[in-house]
């Protein structure tokens, strides 16, 4: 749970010094930031676009943009949140391009009530990790998250997979906190509903 701190008591994040050095032209400092966040940026891009080639391009573009715009980075947000915001924008732009006519935005699909009312009330088997092998399980998880609308998928990725706080997620997506919360709830409930098909406990004698 993120703690609320008053501005004066916050510890200075080690990235602040690296960003400062990078701004002054120290490429090694920027390279360290790239090392620190390249995995995360790739994961975020892959989760949102569901396409590996796009994720590779977005990872490169994100760091290049960050490098060019370093002077515009305001110290009032975390550097990582700022990077994620660039990556999210690049990812949504790619999705829009791929879908040509259809728009993709964070506001899309919020009208639908699908999955917001739970229907499956079976308990799950305690450890899905022990029922399926690694590849099977990853396959199920990928297929399931692919089925979410991009706006929900993005919120779930930042909040639950990348562990950003609600506030950071709101900042990275340009959404209000209540909007993040409602999308997160719908995303979690839709995933839960879909995963229930695979993970629900079966009564004796029922086929697996």
């Amino acid at each position: 749970m993120p703690t609320i701190q008053s501005p004066g008591t916050e510890e200075i994040h080690p990235d602040v010094a690296l960003v400062e050095r990078a701004r002054e032209g120290d490429t090694a400092a920027f390279e360290q930031l790239v090392r620190q966040y390249e995995r995360q940026i790739f994961r975020v891009a892959q989760h949102i676009t569901q396409n590996r080639e796009d994720a590779e391009d977005i990872t490169q573009d994100t760091f290049l943009k960050a490098y060019e715009k370093l002077s515009q980075f305001q110290g009032n947000s975390k550097f990582s949140t700022w990077l994620v915001r660039i990556a999210v924008n690049e990812s949504l732009m790619r999705l829009r391009k791929r879908k040509t006519s259809k728009t993709v935005s964070m506001d899309e699909d919020v009208q639908t009530e699908e999955g917001s009312i739970p229907r499956d009330f079976a308990e799950w088997r305690p450890n899905p990790e022990q029922i399926f092998d690694q590849n099977e399980l990853n396959d199920i998880l990928r297929r399931t998250i692919q089925g979410l609308p991009p706006g929900f998928r993005t919120v779930f990725t930042l909040r639950d997979i990348e562990n950003l706080s609600t506030e950071e997620t709101a900042e990275a997506l340009g959404l209000s906190i209540p909007a993040v919360k409602s999308r997160l709830l719908r995303a979690r409930l839709q995933l839960r509903e879909r995963l229930s098909r695979y993970f629900r406990q079966r009564k004796e004698g029922q086929p697996a």
Partner: peptide, 22 residues
């Protein structure tokens, strides 16, 4: 109670697996 437990499991299973590791 089931929705609470299985939603928690949903989050945990996604957190526990690197589905897009580079």
């Amino acid at each position: 109670e089931v929705v609470l437990n299985t939603t928690r499991q949903t989050i945990e299973v996604y957190r526990g697996q690197e589905i897009y590791e580079i």
